[in-house]
Design a protein around this nucleic acid. Sequence first.
DNA 1: GTAATGTGCAACCTGTCGGTTGCGTCTAGT
DNA 2: ACTAGACGCAACCGACAGGTTGCACATTAC
Lengths: 107, 107
Amino acid sequence: MTDRTGRVFDALADPNRRYVLEALASRETATATELAAELPVTRQAVAKHLAALNEAGLVESQRRGRETLYQLTPAPLGAAMDWMASVGAEWDARLAALRKHLRNRRS
Amino acid sequence: MTDRTGRVFDALADPNRRYVLEALASRETATATELAAELPVTRQAVAKHLAALNEAGLVESQRRGRETLYQLTPAPLGAAMDWMASVGAEWDARLAALRKHLRNRRS
DNA sequence: GTAATGTGCAACCTGTCGGTTGCGTCTAGT
DNA sequence: ACTAGACGCAACCGACAGGTTGCACATTAC
């Protein structure tokens, strides 16, 4: 798996970061101060989270005047989902093989 | 989102833990000492990771004699994927609406 | 021009996480 | 019975992540 996918999971591991993603998903765009108003942490904490999300490629920033707007970029979610799906699928295949094997032995 | 999904992301955030999952996906079953042999850490470290994975519902343990076998339980991955899919989908919908709005304004 | 608003940066604190070491226990082999 | 292998538990440690405070800088409003 690529290292980028690792950073996605790392970004998703924090509850506040997940809330930020949900908020951005329903909002088109938002500033750090706006998001901080809905969370029990300071603006700087939110700014750090946004930096982490940006590092993971989940968010893009765009400065307009004195405020910087953040916007969701959900593409890396796909790669992460692919990894999970592959792990699950491989295991499912093993399980199916095992079941078949047991059925054959029993008969 | 349920708190259980949060623990899944938390579990997936560590590279060694992801390696353990991959190993279990290709192996049906494995012990902590076996897995530790393939990783640059001690058995106890792997045991802690397996405990975390178990806490997240991604792994089940089963003691047989003097060794405990670990086995993948990929079900919680589904819930985590659902969360990601919903965030991505909501954003996609917003983006589509924005595109339509822009196209209407331009015409 | 000046005050207010919004940011970014840096230092600092604290808890937790990943990891190790040490030890006691249980099971399997001989 | 005794030794070796596999565990679990607990204490300990270093590093880093999340958070706060303080401050300087840029941009808007009056």
